[in-house]
Computed example of a mutant assay.
Amino acid sequence: MNKVIDNYILQLKQNLVNLPNSDMQDVVEFYQEFLLDGNYHNESEIIAELGTPKQLARKIMADYSVSIPEREEAHKTSSKSNLKTIWVILLGVLAAPIGIPLALAAVIVMVAVLIALAAIFIALAIIITSLFIAGAFILIRSFGLLFGGYWASGFFYVGGGLVLTCISLMLFPVIMKFIRFLTAECAAFFQHIGRKIFKQRYYKTNV
């Protein structure tokens, strides 16, 4: 086999580590056959046709990510998996051979969505942390009142501190579910954009 093709396929395989093994084997075999049939003899010809191994891997992974049903699968997976999907699609859009205006518009929209998502995450984290810290601080200060002769005020602040602490603990699972919902919706939105952009299929399809 052509050493240039061997080297390209090896690098491609190394950049597809996050693809399921069975799918990765299919993809690798497809591009291996494609390059052999094309009778490519140097790396520059391959890169001109498919891009670098890393670029092609990003396009394949992005195309794989957008091939998953949008909302059904997004809401079944973890926030970490959805964030990974978002990142993979963004990298794929950056690597895809599309018109510059379209690429810029897509990237700007995606980055704006990510910034908004990050802002919401930070705001929620600040709110729940502030409530917990405030509750803990009030509880600590209330003990000084209890043992300092101001027991009535002390009990009042103990109650207030417990209320704030309990609210923060009760809000935590609710906020986590809300974050999972937001990341799932964001992943579905990115998949939708990816389907609009990736006119040429890279995952297990004809080039």
Rank of each mutant, 00 (worst) to 15 (best):
M1F: 04
M1T: 04
N2P: 03
N2Y: 14
V4H: 13
V4W: 09
N7G: 11
L12G: 01
K13D: 08
L16A: 02
V17C: 02
N18A: 06
N18C: 04
L19W: 11
L19G: 01
S22K: 14
Q25S: 05
D26C: 09
D26K: 14
V27C: 07
V28L: 02
E29I: 13
E29A: 08
Q32A: 09
F34D: 03
L35H: 09
L36F: 12
N39R: 10
N42V: 00
E43V: 07
I46S: 15
I47F: 06
I47D: 07
A48P: 03
E49A: 13
L56A: 01
L56D: 07
K59Q: 08
A62H: 09
D63S: 11
S65A: 09
V66R: 05
V66D: 01
S67Q: 13
P69R: 07
P69W: 02
E72P: 04
E73M: 15
A74D: 14
K76D: 01
S78I: 15
S78H: 13
N82F: 15
L83C: 14
L83Q: 15
K84V: 05
K84P: 12
T85G: 10
W87S: 13
V88R: 08
I89A: 04
L90A: 08
L91D: 14
L91A: 02
V93P: 02
P97D: 09
I98E: 06
G99L: 12
G99I: 11
I100K: 06
L104W: 05
V107Y: 03
V107K: 13
V109F: 12
M110V: 10
M110Y: 06
V111F: 05
V113G: 09
L114I: 06
I115Y: 11
A116R: 03
A116E: 11
L117Q: 12
A119G: 10
I120K: 12
I122W: 15
I122S: 00
A123Q: 10
A123V: 05
A123T: 15
L124R: 08
L124F: 14
I126P: 00
T129W: 13
T129P: 12
T129D: 11
S130A: 12
S130H: 03
A134T: 07
G135H: 00
A136S: 00
F137S: 04
I138F: 05
I138W: 15
I138K: 08
L139P: 03
L139D: 00
S142A: 06
L146G: 00
F147N: 01
F147G: 04
Y150S: 01
S153Q: 05
S153P: 07
F155V: 02
F156M: 13
F156R: 14
V158G: 00
G159K: 01
G159Q: 00
S168L: 11
S168W: 05
L171K: 04
L171Y: 15
I179D: 09
F181E: 14
F181V: 14
F181N: 13
A184M: 10
E185Q: 06
E185K: 04
C186Q: 14
A187Y: 08
A187N: 01
F190Y: 01
G194C: 01
G194F: 03
F198V: 03
F198C: 05
K199E: 04
K199S: 08
Q200P: 04
Q200G: 06
Y202Q: 03
Y203F: 05
T205G: 10
T205K: 09
N206E: 02
N206W: 11
